[in-house]
Design a binder for these strands. Structure first.
Length: 488
RNA sequence: GGCGCCAUAGUGCAACGGUUAGCACGGCAGGCUUUCAAUCUGCAAAUCCGGGUUCGAUUCCCGGUGGCGCUACCA
């Protein structure tokens, strides 16, 4: 096979945050590089001055790091390599592979014009391939226009016959007739390169061997292959990965709610869970394996396993993955995430990093079977970490109805206060003895007490909760709750 | 409009000429009784349509339909 070292790249443009589609592309590139012992580099495609937002770059890098996708080289910025693209364009111009175009940019209709033509129904222009009139200009005419100071773009002269072939590891060998390809722009009249030019120049310069990117680039690939050849380079191997769609099967966008990686990080998803979910969108191991740790992912990833079908982003499944990781993550890996969550909620206490670390671990282990997101550690389980919590309405209505409760809870508080020991069995015995003496089912007291202790109907088992909270707090919270029950 | 790609339960994937079409999420129904968003059990649910090829098509070919993409001096 090839002796050349595999080199791949992820090339986002800072026109927005890192969205899930881009994240998945980055992940695939990274996995492929790691699997092949190759190099993964990062390149920022910031050649569109209009839409470019430099302040967004840092966020994109942060999101990639959060995901665990780390680059070996870069980030490289195209805005710092403009001279390279200009030279390439000039070279193609000199070689006759490109020509200056003096047309006004506006005469190339954008999306709006397209909609208009739909309204005017039938009369849609049969426009096959539109050839720029500037292509036919004689050398003298061109010189005259240039000398007159007319602004011009540089356009690639696509061969009028023949076909262009390339290899795609996902979609197979492709072939496109050249007469289907329009003369595309390489350099804008502002002397800034278009994507088509800069991507090829850089991929050549950076020795990229495999271009793994979204399938939305599939149709434009022939243009780039033409450019590689015109620039005297061998095209890389391509691998276009299917798109990620929203639940309505249209391209994922803000309309579908959170689409940025950062939003999911902020919502309390674990990076390992998010990554696992992402890798299975458009790729599979070939068997029924779903839970894959980083090592397994790297080991098993291959372009052959990439699907050709667009995938719908399913948040419910993402939450399931998160739940899985939340349950299985070793406590020492989970604790830092919980700490972050508690800090955000302003509930963090320094002692939990020191002497009370074991207590925190105990509480987290008790709470986690019922958690799906990190936020669950500060929402319904808030009462474990602070006295400042409230009694959920649904919980009060469901478990604080019996009018005998205030009296019984007062007795329970007394019994617990006097219990010879403070552990699961002692609490259990104290409560059940009381229930028996009062002639009520233990469940009545258990459920009412749970609400008194943490304010929720859905919460961990009671006696372990008592152990975690400690005798003093348990007795106090039961007594504090009593008046609220009466008034209910 | 033109060109292209894709098509298995609601969703993500398996089955790459022969299976009762498998797994997971979600859904629904029960169990547990110390709540449920925890847990256990069970159930429903798919090969887009029409032609071929073949002893045999989810699978190969053609047509249709649908979805998506591209068709920018955006990336």
């Amino acid at each position: 096979m090839t002796t050349r070292k595999i080199r791949v790249r992820f090339a986002p443009s800072p026109t927005g945050y890192l969205h899930v589609g881009g994240a998945r592309t980055a992940l695939f590139n990274w996995l492929f590089a790691r699997n092949q012992g190759g190099i993964f580099l990062l390149r920022i495609e910031d050649t569109d001055v209009e839409r470019n937002r430099p302040e967004l770059v840092e966020g994109i890098l942060d999101d990639l790091k959060w995901l665990g996708v780390e680059w070996d080289e870069g980030p490289f910025f195209q805005s710092e390599r403009l001279e390279l693209y200009r030279e390439a364009a000039e070279r193609l111009l000199a070689a006759g592979a490109a020509y200056p175009c003096f047309c006004a940019p506006s005469q190339y209709a954008g999306p709006e014009a397209k909609e208009e033509s739909e309204e005017s129904e039938e009369e849609a222009a049969p426009a096959a391939r539109q050839t720029c009139p500037c292509r036919g200009l004689s050398a003298a005419e061109r010189d005259a226009k240039v000398r007159a100071g007319l602004p011009y773009a540089i356009r690639f002269h696509v061969p009028e016959s023949g076909s262009t072939k390339f290899r795609d590891e996902v979609f197979g060998d492709r072939e496109v007739q050249n007469d289907e390809i329009e003369d595309f722009a390489l350099l804008r009249s502002s002397r800034l390169p278009t994507y088509q030019l800069s991507v090829v120049v850089d991929d050549i310069a950076m020795g990229i061997t495999h271009v793994i990117r979204g399938a939305d680039h599939l149709s434009n690939t022939p243009k780039q292959v033409l450019l590689y050849r015109a620039l005297g380079a061998e095209p890389p191997i391509f691998a276009h990965v299917p798109l990620i769609l929203g639940p309505d099967r249209t391209r994922l966008s803000k309309r579908h709610g959170a689409t940025s990686v950062g939003a999911y990080a902020g919502e309390g998803f674990l990076p390992e869970a998010f990554r696992n979910f992402l890798v299975l969108l458009g790729w599979s191991t070939g068997d029924d394996t779903e839970l894959l740790d980083t090592g397994e992912m790297v080991e098993r990833f291959s372009l052959a396993g990439v699907s050709r079908t667009n995938a719908v982003f399913d948040r419910a499944k993402l939450e399931w993955f998160n739940t899985q990781y939340l349950q299985k993550l070793p406590i020492e890996r989970l604790l830092p995430y919980v700490e972050g969550e508690l800090r955000r909620a302003e509930l963090w206490q320094e002692a939990w990093a020191g002497p009370d670390r074991a207590w925190l671990a105990h509480a987290v282990d008790l709470i986690r079977p019922r958690t799906r997101l990190l936020g669950d550690f500060t929402s319904w389980s808030r009462g474990f970490f602070t006295d400042d919590f409230d009694y959920e309405k649904a919980a009060r209505e469901k478990f604080w109805k019996d009018e005998r409760l205030p009296a019984m809870l007062e007795k329970l508080a007394g019994a617990l206060d006097a219990a010879p020991e403070w552990n699961h069995d002692a609490c259990d015995r104290a409560l059940r003895d009381l229930a028996a003496a009062e002639g009520v089912k233990a469940g009545l007291l258990i459920n009412a007490t749970r609400v008194a202790l943490v304010g929720r109907a859905v919460a961990p088992p009671l006696f372990e909760t008592m152990v975690v909270l400690g005798r003093e707090r348990v007795v106090r919270r039961i007594r504090q709750a009593i008046p609220k029950i009466t008034g209910n």
